[in-house]
Design a protein around this nucleic acid. Sequence first.
DNA 1: TAGCGTTGTGATAGCGCTATCACATTTATT
DNA 2: AATAAATGTGATAGCGCTATCACAACGCTA
Lengths: 367, 367
Amino acid sequence: MISRKPLKRVTMNEVAREANVSPAVAARALGGYGYVSETKRTQVEAAAARLGYRPNMIAKSMVTGRTRTIGIIGADISNPFFAGAVKGIADESRRHGFDTLLTNSDENTEIERDALRVLLAKRVDGLVVSPADVNDCDHLREAVQQGTPLVMLDRIAAGIQADSVVIDNVEASRRAIAGLITGGHRRIAMVTELGTQSDRKLLNQLDKPESADVTTLNTSGARLLGYLVAHRQAGLSPDPALIRPTDAYASASARQCTLELMALESPPTSIFTGDSVMTLGAFAAIQHLGISLPDQLAFMGFDDMDWMGLVKPSLSALRQPVYAMGAAAIELLMARLASPERPSEHRVFEVESILRDSTRNAWCCHN
Amino acid sequence: MISRKPLKRVTMNEVAREANVSPAVAARALGGYGYVSETKRTQVEAAAARLGYRPNMIAKSMVTGRTRTIGIIGADISNPFFAGAVKGIADESRRHGFDTLLTNSDENTEIERDALRVLLAKRVDGLVVSPADVNDCDHLREAVQQGTPLVMLDRIAAGIQADSVVIDNVEASRRAIAGLITGGHRRIAMVTELGTQSDRKLLNQLDKPESADVTTLNTSGARLLGYLVAHRQAGLSPDPALIRPTDAYASASARQCTLELMALESPPTSIFTGDSVMTLGAFAAIQHLGISLPDQLAFMGFDDMDWMGLVKPSLSALRQPVYAMGAAAIELLMARLASPERPSEHRVFEVESILRDSTRNAWCCHN
DNA sequence: TAGCGTTGTGATAGCGCTATCACATTTATT
DNA sequence: AATAAATGTGATAGCGCTATCACAACGCTA
């Protein structure tokens, strides 16, 4: 039960009275607009300080229609990818005089819809969203249509007229796998979450990746597609037993999947993980089994973390410039706020291959 | 340049007209309060849906004086400690129907002051703050006095009438060091950031920790104090050469400090780090030098991370229940919103010692 | 029939500001 | 000196809602 009496705060009118000027003058002095004489400005400022006046953004937003606030809908702040991106978003927003309202969707479209409703009710000036499912985005489309600019981060939902900041997941993954294939690997396992229906559909068409519609795939689906394409291009047919979708408790599940993979009659000679959480679990399994990398198993994962250079052997990874991507999202948003009619822009960032010991002699640059 | 025309949005009045009811009825139907007949409620809801009506929280806050928003001032979201805490804060807030406005202080009091000003202007209903410097908190005190409830997380600023959620840094650190001493170590190094003046003052009184004023110490100062107390209690005099304050670029600096420590004529037999960022840098140095843990050097650090169990050898650490601490901060805030006059509550969480290979045979439980 | 509570509806003040007038005064230009 | 422009001030509408009235219509009891 919330107490009902909102506390009485000092208002501009009281400051005006204290300073013996009209409310209009006080407003101009405090708000920094229009004409005010130096004398009165000082009077007003002194009065404001004396009374402990705090401007009320709510009231200001009420009349201006702007809040100088950006809403963020991310999957999970405790995931390092988002933590880094959120930092970039927050810093860059601040630089432009905007604040950030943060929400978590937990990769759940229902929660996302809810979060969106709240952010729109709060009248944020713009949104940065990582859609939980790119195939279920009517709510996002409606927000854009009603006039709230939106930038998609990490994932692009088809059919939404909005800017985006992404990497080319298919190509990054394809290149990584192609490298392993060129390095001589033929049994490459992939451990990844496959949270959505459309991503899982890929499992039924392992040999015809070209028939998949990229625009309906989420991040991990796209990474799996890259895996399939690399195989296809090399004339190889992927073994379904080596593709392991994990379930919800991601890290633990990745560990379990990896244990099972290595227990196969014909285990993989190399393993590729869909993100850093998968990498954590898979590597835990590898340690547990005492498997030696890269001789017995080559290892490469999506998303680079500091610690990957410190484990033995060190782990190769595909690095996304997360902070820069977050900052870029805000740049695009600011550009759109300035000119709402500009054509939508899609910023594709480069993925860097960080080659460490876990792929030594196992990976060859492909192109 | 921001475009100036705020876009025209559907208001309650328009919904009322569309539904052929008075604005008051529409307000009650949409706001879910007071009497409305079933018939009219349905009419209004239909009209709202038809027009794509979105409630305006700003206007509502204007009259109610509440925003259902919690402001967070944290040091750095990309630091795993805060990322975890922020998750706890956000989740728990959401459970209570509150949203979170996130800001970063970068451990800088100036930025913190700024962030506070903005959050108060936005009329947040409450604050969760990790003060950058517990000795420079007049701005926080004023906020509390003006009536915005505030919970301090991770650090307590003296003389502020507010709730707090912390761990006992002195005791946790003292116990860890005492364990190393009992384990036979006499030359224990400490690598930690010492960002504030008051923390650095400790360096001038290594042998009389009891003369330090705990309430003026920040997190890392308190941890250093624990280190000193443990030595004192064991009748040992700490070697100043083994206490290494790092500077700004934390991880790299910790690496450098560790390299220098190990190059000493008489190097430490054990090393203790002030947080996970320090641990990362220190461990990188240890790997670089090829030092074997725990034989050549016992290792223990503050803050546990997933990867610490995966490096070779695995690293011992003091684990804080970060998520729970974030959630607890919101619990306290909600309790205070419900009864503003309740006495302030200080929640002290337990620190768990995660003993792994890096302290094998080097650490003995002390009490 | 009068008197009462219950249920539903409408009118409207006002939250704290900004923006826009109208107007007063000073300074510059012809 | 007359006019125009620049500079400063005050009054006030209104942003979209909620909360508070006043009141009407209805069924109930006495």
